[in-house]
Nucleic acid binder design. Structure first.
Lengths: 343, 343
DNA sequence: AAACCTTACGAAAACGTTTGCGTGTGGAAA
DNA sequence: TTTCCACACGCAAACGTTTTCGTAAGGTTT
């Protein structure tokens, strides 16, 4: 088993100095053409590749972006990662992905681990626990050590840094408006508990849309779900015998679960009750009926986040001091779950 | 913006040598209790963390596992990653994930990049293109440089290394058997082109099951799909007016697409046609009717792959020379799409 | 022949660690 | 007083690079 070949070995083999080898490989005019060719031939033969670690140490940068997300088995987050990777690869950056599993502790650990030399900067969507706990010391600390951080989707207002978000309230308003324009009047919302920032914002958008239509907000049409994994019974109880003609769900799972529940309760989607979701995942696309939804354009978010970060990493200090918040436009994707044609 | 603090800075500040600081932080008895406490207090104050890069260089290992998968936006692969991360974190390893996007070139580039110092070993599921091209030099090369590789799911028989797979043929046979035992006789299969190893194996399993039941194999019941992204029309044409009572799909997408198509063609699932899929993703679980499927236990695969790799990384040379293939058991998850109770 | 300039290369420092070994200091034993 | 031994610490090498600077050899100019 041959080991990785280093400059030193090549130098020894060819009976020149390490610096000569290094320069020869870089086609430095300092080195005679003869030596250059000899060295390059040898390096090729032995498949020499400069050691990234040594380079990182020397250059004091790793050319690596750390991405920390709450869940890895999650369609939206993976699309974001896709966007990040795309830009990163173009610009010669590597991407390290860690999931916090929605745990504050794991988020901190991952961040500290990556911060101690493995990454030059971070793209981060915070864990639920972190939002609940409101402890952001790890983020502040990372930034104060000179590593830029870009927050996306689940961001933190109190932390001053670059951010990439969608206008959740606006998206929710668009969704609710869509329901209103197709004639729905009694619209229920399936949302999360308030400490999840995006859930709260989407609820606000829903309320705003209602107000614009002079429809009074009704407590009994709002369900704030805590335990996402067992939402089915909760949704089922909530929807039971409720007089509604539409449901706005703040995520994909709530939307399909609502569709299922309504089905079981003998109601037709979209004829009896229209449904609109949030996040354009595979579920929405393939469900029957296919679900109208608000697309967050995850890949775009990833692209923008990566660009912001790399700008900061490569920018001079003038750029470094200003922070930007990019708002990605959402879009309404109309599908079958809000088609009222059969009436 | 304070920079990351190093041993050198602490040493200077405290007017001792670098080695003293290093040893003090490690609680070496060589250093007086007094100095030790002083150093540790200072280090804590300035939030000293040893630089991973420097450690990697010194120890000639990075404590990172490189994972390369064909697609990142893919439920099965993310579950595998979840498993890998779990084990890796337990054992103090980092995980770098790269996607090849099913491109041979990108697979090679990613591998070479990670191999030149960023990772100690690899967990890999090869790209479609790689399987088609049958060019495995990058894998062989990586291994010959002393970095262990574990292949999973889409493996390569010709490459000698650790592997984690499911028994695809057996799983497919189980699936087909299930259809046969509930009384189906005319079973179509939706599979991939042959060069995708898992597709071929699953097709074999299907055929084996038929043979065991003395049912002749019929060409017209087998559809090999090339372009996965546009499978709907292909499946629709194939299924049109076909006299069948069941469909076995080798993946989730084919399964739900078949369900949709059949629906559009006025057939009921499962009453008229039963459907069974492969891979237990969200689609199968949430679709209406929910889909019976073969679970590959992605997380388990990740766990086993990570364990194999870490064993090899930390093992002595005796272990290093033998290669193991772990076969993960599949299991049948019965859901509504194969319920024939209404007959 | 002296002074100078190219050419072609090597030495060494630096990045941040760890660690084996050397060494100065002080006190205790002889 | 001499010898010896802990003790507490520093030196230096090593990991693999890159890059600045120094320099020997040889040739060219006056």
């Amino acid at each position: 088993m041959k080991q990785k070949v280093t400059l030193k070995q090549i130098a020894k083999e060819l009976d020149v100095s390490i610096s000569t080898v290094s320069k020869a490989l870089k086609d430095s005019v300092e080195i005679s053409l003869d030596t250059r060719q000899k060295v390059k031939a040898f390096a090729k033969l032995y498949n020499y590749k400069p050691n990234n670690i040594a380079l990182s140490l020397k250059n004091r940068k790793t050319k690596t972006i750390g991405v920390i997300i709450p869940e890895i088995v999650h369609h939206f987050f993976t699309t974001v990662i896709g966007g990040v990777e795309k830009v990163a690869n173009e610009k010669g950056y590597n991407v390290i992905i860690c999931s916090s599993n929605n745990s504050f502790d794991k988020e901190v650990i991952n961040m500290e681990m990556l911060a101690s030399g493995s990454a030059d900067g971070f793209i981060l969507s915070v864990a639920k626990e972190t939002q609940l706990k409101k402890d952001y010391h790890h983020i502040e600390e990372t930034m104060s050590q000179g590593m830029p951080v870009v927050l996306f989707d689940r961001i933190i207002d109190e932390v001053v840094c670059d951010k990439v978000i969608i206008d959740d309230a606006k998206g929710a308003q668009t969704a609710t408006n869509h329901l209103l324009t197709i004639g729905c009047k009694k619209i229920a919302i399936l949302t999360t508990v308030d400490y999840i920032s995006v859930g709260k914002l989407r609820t606000n958008g829903y309320l705003r849309a209602l107000r614009a239509y002079d429809i009074p907000e009704k407590e009994e049409l709002i369900l704030k779900i805590e335990d996402i994994d067992n939402c089915e019974t909760e949704i089922s109880d909530f929807l039971k015998d409720k007089d509604i003609d539409a449901v706005f769900a703040v995520n994909e799972l709530f939307a399909v679960t609502a569709a299922k529940v309504l089905n079981n309760q003998g109601k037709n989607v979209p004829e009896d009750v229209a449904i609109i979701g949030f996040t354009d995942g595979i579920l929405s696309k393939h469900f029957i009926p296919s679900l109208t939804t608000i697309s967050q354009h995850g890949e775009d978010m990833g692209v923008r986040a990566a660009k912001l970060l790399i700008d900061k990493l490569e920018g001079d200090d003038a750029v470094t001091e200003e922070y930007r918040t990019v708002i990605i436009d959402t879009s309404l994707i109309q599908r079958q779950s809000t088609k009222k044609t059969k009436s």
